[in-house]
Amino acid sequence: MMSRLSSIRWGRSGERSWASIVRQLRRPPVLVLVFMLLIAIFGPLFAPYDPLEPQPMNTLAAPSWAHWFGTDDYGFDIFSRVIYAARIDFSLALLGVLIGGGIGSLLGAFAAYRGGFIDWVLLRFVEIVQSFPVLLFALALFAAIGGGSRNMVLAIAIVNIPMYLRIIRSTLLPLRTAEFIDAARCAGLSGPGIVIKHFIPNAKGQIFSLFVLTCAYAIQIIAGLSFIGLGVEPPHPEWGSMINSGAGYIMLGVWWPSIFPGLAIVLSVYAVNGLSREQMTGQLRGSI
C-alpha cells in the first residue's frame, strides 16, 4: 500500500522544463500553497496593525473595512494576527518535521540495512510511540519537561520519527538483498556509508511525499496543542490559540475570532496535502 505514496506530481519523470513548472503552478493546491508561503514570508510587511498591540476600546468588533477580520476580545486585529501567525506555525511545523523526519529516515534506512535484532527493537519502538494518541503523548511529554514552542517542536519531532522509520524501512527492505548493495560492500564501503549513499537516495520520493503529509499533520498538531493552551503562549499570534480565545464567544454569535484563523489552518493543510497525490490515510492517523 505504501509504495503508492511515492508518486508526487512533479510533472512527468525527467521533465523539468518551464512548461511543467507553469503547469504545476496552475493546480489549485499549489496556488494556495504559494499564496500561503508568500503571506508567511512577506505578509508582515503588509499587515495593517501590530499583532501584539491591543485596542482596549475596540474589542470584538465585527469585520469591517478598518479591521478586515474584525477584532478579538482584547482588541487585537485578527487579520494582522492571522498573517503573523503563518510564520510561527509554518516554521515550527517545518522545524519539527525536519528533525523528526531526518532522524526517522536514517533509522528506517538503518533498520532496513541491518535487519535482525536492531530492526526488531526499532519496530517495537515504533509500536510503542504510536500506541499513544498524538495529543496525549504531547501532554505526557509536556508534563515531564514543560510546554512552550521549543518543547512543541520536540514533541512533533518525536511523533514523526516512527512514521518515517516504519515507512522508509518498508520501502528499503528489498534493497538488503540487492546486487548493487553487495557490490558496494565488496567495494569496501562501510555500513553507514551504504545507508547514506545508497539506501537514503533510493527512498527520496518516499521521503519527500511523507515530508509533505507530515508537515500538514504537524500544522494541525501545533494548532491543537496551542488550542488547549500548551503550545505557543497566548499573546503571540498562533492559529490554534487564536481559535481558543474566540471559542467562548461563538455561542454568542461572535464567529470571526475563531473562524478566520481556522480557515488559515484549513487552507494551509489542504494546500500542503495537495502536493501529494496520495491522501493522508490510516498510516498517519487521520486528522487532529
Binding site: 500538514a216 481559535i243 461563538i250 481556522g262 493543510v269 496535502n273 486528522s287
Partner: peptide
C-alpha cells in the same frame, strides 16, 4: 476536507451554525 479541517475548529463551526 476531513483531513484538512482541525476537529476543534469544525466543532466550533457546527456550534455556530447548528446552535447559534
Amino acid at each position: 476536507i476531513g483531513v484538512s479541517v482541525p476537529s476543534f475548529w469544525l466543532g466550533l463551526l457546527f456550534i455556530y451554525l447548528l446552535y447559534y
